[in-house]
Design a binder for these strands. Sequence first.
DNA 1: TATAATACCTAGTAACTTAGTAGGTAATTA
DNA 2: TAATTACCTACTAAGTTACTAGGTATTATA
Lengths: 159, 159
Amino acid sequence: MKLSTKGRYAVTAMMDLAVNDRDGPVTLSDISGWQGISLSYLEQLFSKLRKARLVEGVRGPGGGYRLGKPADKISIAQIILAVDESIDSTQCKGSEDCLAGDRCMTHKLWEDLSFRLYEFLNGITLADFIKRPEVRRISVQQNSTSSQISRMFQPVAHA
Amino acid sequence: MKLSTKGRYAVTAMMDLAVNDRDGPVTLSDISGWQGISLSYLEQLFSKLRKARLVEGVRGPGGGYRLGKPADKISIAQIILAVDESIDSTQCKGSEDCLAGDRCMTHKLWEDLSFRLYEFLNGITLADFIKRPEVRRISVQQNSTSSQISRMFQPVAHA
DNA sequence: TATAATACCTAGTAACTTAGTAGGTAATTA
DNA sequence: TAATTACCTACTAAGTTACTAGGTATTATA
């Protein structure tokens, strides 16, 4: 499991699709403008999303992309796994003496953490964000805590 | 919030410190051997961890690193934020017409997701993993599901 | 039928990040 | 005094990110 700007681009683009679902297909050109991402890079991302069947393309004028399945069937984890290369999880390539040596235990702890993270992100769907009447609520709610959030995401203060 | 191999190295190294807490300071040389990470790269990581006061160094023979505070006061989020550069979250650099234009809403949805992720990772501490009698339990529990996990973390199957 | 709009594809590349090497100095223990 | 460790700086190879440039295939519409 990896979380980077690439994954963020994919998730926000999928949110765009979900939010505008009822207005027909959304063009990559539009998303490019809204999100400030180059069209060609979006094409690369959507190629992966399409192969994972998370979106489907519609060619020709009036075309674009639609969600490949209902928004409540698309989790954040699915999106991230579709576009990001997976992390190689262990350094002790399954050598058994490492396990017996008890040092590899931390690898298992890490896998446990990764699994919890996966479950968490797999439990959040696009529908959780864009259920129409609630979008504004989330938005407002977000406003009220946005200053706290930006503080939290600052780099840790250095001594 | 960013999650990469760099963050994983930091988290597993911190787990190593926590697990071996009672045996005195742990040397980077040891961690380097256990985790297969170069000594100098570990030094770079621990420089950041030290500045964030998550570890403290002990010089001289018999020295090494200790946790900077109790394991139940160190969250996974703190570790990751200490070593990873933070992601620049919005592309519409606060331009208000973007907000009014309703397109920037997805940025708020993303921030909401980031915040949930932060809360999740901030709610998990090192102590959750290494409370002594439980380490083996987690390990065993992990074994039973490890095949499922490795399946889940494979790249998404392509059509 | 012609044109435009779109998806869809390949190749190349600049900038950045990751992870490493090399070569030190400072503090501390034995 | 010697060995061991943290701690620091500079440099670098490999990989990833995000972009540019150039196409082809499909389809709606004028």
